[in-house]
């Protein structure tokens, strides 16, 4: 397990704190881990590269 230190804008931190206060997450670690997991799920290399390849086809042969 690695530790990272990150600085958050005040407004983002307040939103994090609010989710914890309302019981959606146990603590700051949990919410940051969940956010990072979701980000990494969405930004999978295969997905991004598939979009670029679709763009190549559309660019060269697409119809608008």
């Amino acid at each position: 397990m690695k530790s990272i230190c990150a600085q958050l804008p005040d407004q983002v931190y307040q939103e994090v704190k609010s989710l914890i206060d309302k019981g959606w997450f146990k603590n700051e670690d949990d919410i940051i881990l969940e956010a990072l997991r979701r980000f990494l799920d969405i930004h999978k290399i295969e997905l991004m590269e598939n979009f670029v390849r679709e763009d190549v086809e559309w660019g060269l042969h697409g119809k608008e």
Binding site: F51, D55, W58, G59, L60
Partner: peptide
Amino acid sequence: AAARLAGEELGYKAHGTIGIILR
């Protein structure tokens, strides 16, 4: 990628810089 995924999920055509350049 996430915005494009959302756009396509909503049924819209979405493209990026590479598509515009080749177009």
